[in-house]
């Protein structure tokens, strides 16, 4: 025990204090986003800027809701993110389960294919997708953006879920088969319930990725009525002059669900990410 203390010193509360200050400083830009949204038009252009809003107001929030169609943008973002999440979970669970159970060269080839396909930048896939979806006549629909985005989240889901499915003991499945379950019933009643937590983590991450999707929405849809919040925020900051308190209010409303999901799921997300990227 004494050796252990000598090599891994229990450094205690002073380190906690340093860590709190460091983390707070690192995440200060996020604080800045929320508080900038609470400032008045006069205060946002104060020099030097005020670290704490002097007259906090919801004016900017009210403005973006009333004038910038924030609700429509958010609805569109969710209309894209929700189907992506479902498609990702369904196909991801099937593929990861198969990869964890089959052991032959075909699976190795499939896994390497998935790993290789996940690396191509979206902005470069956008042009061929534009042409393919144009041929299929689904440009300017949510379907185009949903299909395109799922290709990104699905590859990620397969990589994260495969090691998780491996942890389900084969004996459990064999037992269920002895009890007369066919392979579908075994998957549905025995394996999936055990995978609840990993599936929730992957579903959350897929949702967050699809919710923040920008490139495919920008390129595959030109109808402004259909655009998600990312494109809405972009059209706001793209201008030479920006009403920063309003941009930040819009951004705050948009990312609030992401931050809340993250805070609830933090521990599980960290575990899921480390399992997926390096195993």
């Amino acid at each position: 025990m004494s050796v252990r203390i000598a090599t891994a010193p229990r450094v205690g509360w002073p380190y906690t204090l340093i860590a709190i200050c460091g983390v707070a400083l690192y995440l200060f830009p996020i604080y800045w986003m929320f508080t900038s949204g609470l400032k008045t038009s006069a205060e946002i252009f104060a020099n030097p800027p005020t670290l704490i809003p002097q007259n906090p107001t919801l004016e900017a929030f009210a403005h973006v809701f009333a004038r910038e169609n924030v609700l429509r943008y958010l609805r569109n973002s969710i209309a894209i993110a929700a189907p992506v999440t479902i498609l990702t979970l369904v196909m991801g669970a099937m593929g990861a389960y198969a990869m964890s159970r089959l052991r032959n060269r075909l699976v190795d080839v499939a896994l390497v294919t998935v790993l290789m396909l996940q690396v191509f930048p979206e902005a470069l896939l956008a042009t061929p997708m534009f042409i393919i979806f144009r041929a299929l006549d689904i440009l300017n629909t949510f379907a185009a953006v949903i299909l395109a985005t799922t290709s990104k989240t699905l590859a990620f889901a397969l990589v994260v879920l495969r090691p998780m499915f491996r942890q389900v003991p084969i004996e459990l499945e064999e037992a269920s088969r002895v009890d007369g379950c066919n392979s579908w019933q075994t998957f549905w009643r025995i394996v999936l319930p055990l995978m609840r937590t990993p599936l929730i983590v992957v579903g959350t991450l897929a949702f967050v990725q699809a919710y923040g999707q920008f490139v495919y929405a920008l390129t595959l849809m030109s109808d402004q009525e259909l655009q998600p919040a990312t494109v809405g925020i972009y059209s706001f900051v793209g201008a030479e002059y920006a009403d920063w308190h309003r941009v930040m209010a819009f951004s705050s409303v948009f990312v609030a669900p992401v931050i809340i999901l993250f805070l609830i799921m933090q521990r599980k997300i960290v575990a899921g990410l480390t399992a997926g990227a390096l195993k």
């Binding site: 923040g212 925020i233 990410l273």
Partner: peptide, 11 residues
């Protein structure tokens, strides 16, 4: 710290 990485890149 991972909160920063969770944000949409556009934001």
């Amino acid at each position: 710290l991972l909160a920063a990485w969770m944000l949409p890149a556009l934001v």
